[in-house]
């Protein structure tokens, strides 16, 4: 953590950059990191929490092995994205922002991935799946689940 913070300046403007970096290192913003960041920037832990909970990018819990992100953008919505999302929720048994008990999958939503012409779009750990139908959800999740 000290090594990581050394790379950054000590001004308020550095906060979001630091949070991005911490999350990319640890998968989330671990609770003990918050006072350390606050100390580095000479602000209160409350102020750090205020910023990190405002933005969707940051999470306080580590994600599962696979993060399944279902696009809820308008184009995906009118092309059947809502039904795809409902199916993913049903299959995984969790809601948005949650992780399965076996820590295999986390479920997230996004308001647009920007590949609207080929939606509904589901992204798993950065890999795009386009024109996903409800019937595709089961096999898609099974493929990831069975990976070594």
């Amino acid at each position: 953590m000290d090594e990581l913070l050394k790379e950054f300046g000590r001004e308020q403007k550095d906060l979001i950059h630091i949070l991005h970096k911490v999350q990319s290192e640890y998968g989330c913003i671990p609770a003990p990191a918050v006072p350390r960041i606050a100390e580095h920037l000479n602000i209160t832990p409350n102020e750090v929490y205020g910023v990190l909970t405002f933005y969707k990018a940051f999470r306080l819990q580590p994600p599962g092995k696979y993060t399944v992100t279902v696009c809820q953008g308008t184009s995906c919505h009118v092309r059947g994205g809502a039904a795809v999302f409902a199916e993913v929720k049903k299959q995984l048994g969790i809601g948005a922002g949650e992780t399965t008990a076996d820590r295999m999958f986390s479920l997230e939503t996004v308001n647009c991935f920007g590949c609207c012409a080929i939606g509904p779009t589901v992204v798993v750990n950065g890999r795009y799946h386009s024109q996903v139908r409800v019937a595709d959800v089961g096999p898609l999740l099974a493929r990831y689940r069975s990976r070594p």
Binding site: Q12, K13, G50, Y55, A57
Partner: peptide, 22 residues
Amino acid sequence: EGAGAYVCGEETSLIASIEGYR
């Protein structure tokens, strides 16, 4: 790099975000 807040499309919010605030 933004951090996922639609309101940043609004000029004064965008400025607050670059400054490191909510």
